[in-house]
Design a protein around this nucleic acid. Structure first.
Lengths: 205, 205
DNA sequence: CTTCTAATTAGATGTACGTCTATGAACTTA
DNA sequence: TAAGTTCATAGACGTACATCTAATTAGAAG
């Protein structure tokens, strides 16, 4: 278990370690529920349920379908499965030793990258950081695709969290963030500053 | 998952949903650790570590071996396995419907009880509560053995929690508690008011 | 008995967060 | 446009709790 996964596990634990939210998980299992419906069942006010929903949603645990005035939430089973997988190896230490990725070894380990992609990454990175932003769109897309993999799927990030991850890659995190969204690697919620990773073949079901 | 197990899961989630404690779990996996040792590794003061230890211990997640001035803690793997089993069915609702155990059906379901034991329980209980405390020691032991099963193994209870469970069985919870300890069905920590269930064949490993 | 060591307990402090009321935003329907 | 519905957001309030310093217990060693 690497450090990011361990932080992700921690997020999930904190999110689920609440009586009301754990109950809601049960309510939304195999069934769509609206906020007002759960407020009635749990005997809480709607804003309170809304608060819990936002926590669960931010942790990627919910699917949302909007229809008319109502928002139908239901459990994201893929995400729950991930949580269970984490818990299965929960004793594994956070692995304090970060391998430092001395050179470009990590590039070879990328299973999605073609030889051409790998060459681009070798050319434009040093020790895991971008040294320059490619201007050719094709190369830029390769870089963005790699950037996207730095984010967990099925999890919501605040803008601050996104920036924190991207700053590790390049000073100009704003450009990276904008194009990740612009080219469809990440999505952003209409109102708030919430982001999540999108995969081309995802959510098709 | 019944209501007690669900509350137990909640306790474990709350206990584990903390960065320091999750790290400690890693440190104590397959290895004994002392408080001062972990305080050094985590860069926390000893009282702080002690605080976290007590939470983990209360949740039954630790084994303790005392030697000289030091206390060696290590992970209780059986308890972690229980947690994992809970998580595996985490979506299962709390099962709000308590079957009410209309009559004595629950007695038949006790796998440890002989026919003689069952007769004692039928005679001295009504709707799951003790109607009278047997004076004959043999019958009393049967009752105590049953009472012990109302507690989770591998978990620590405060005196208040013990009383809460026992009050459901009989007004005179103090007598029940005293004899549970006196006859070796439960153990109590020397100083504080912490209790845990002991099984004759437990901890022998 | 005294001194040292290891850990817990007591008490204080600041932060995180669950819950509420009040308000605003987005959409539907008349 | 106006009125109604559903939910989210803002802000306030109180409790829970992670952490610290200081004091206390319990055992070991002198």
């Amino acid at each position: 278990m690497d450090k990011d996964q361990w932080q992700d596990l921690l997020l999930l634990l904190k999110t689920l370690a609440d009586e009301q939210r754990l109950t809601m998980i049960g309510l939304m299992n195999d069934q769509e529920r609206t906020v007002s419906e759960m407020a009635g069942l749990l005997k809480l006010t709607e804003p309170t349920v809304s608060h819990h929903i936002s926590k669960l949603h931010h942790a990627g645990l919910l699917h949302l379908r909007m229809e008319g005035n109502s928002r139908f939430y239901r459990l994201n089973e893929r995400r729950m499965a991930k949580f269970k997988a984490y818990v299965a190896e929960i004793e594994t230490p956070p692995t304090e030793v970060v391998p430092v990725e001395s050179d470009n070894a990590w590039i070879e380990a990328l299973d999605w990258a073609s030889e051409e992609d790998k060459k681009v990454l070798r050319d434009y990175t040093f020790d895991g950081r971008l040294t320059q932003l490619p201007t050719k769109e094709k190369k830029w897309l390769t870089v963005l695709r790699w950037l996207a993999t730095r984010f967990e799927t099925d999890r919501r990030y605040t803008e601050k969290e996104v920036n924190a991850v991207l700053t590790e890659i390049h000073r100009d995190y704003a450009t990276l963030r904008r194009d990740l969204v612009g080219f469809g690697f990440m999505a952003r919620q209409n109102g708030g500053g919430e982001y999540w990773r999108v995969e081309p073949e995802e959510e098709g079901a």
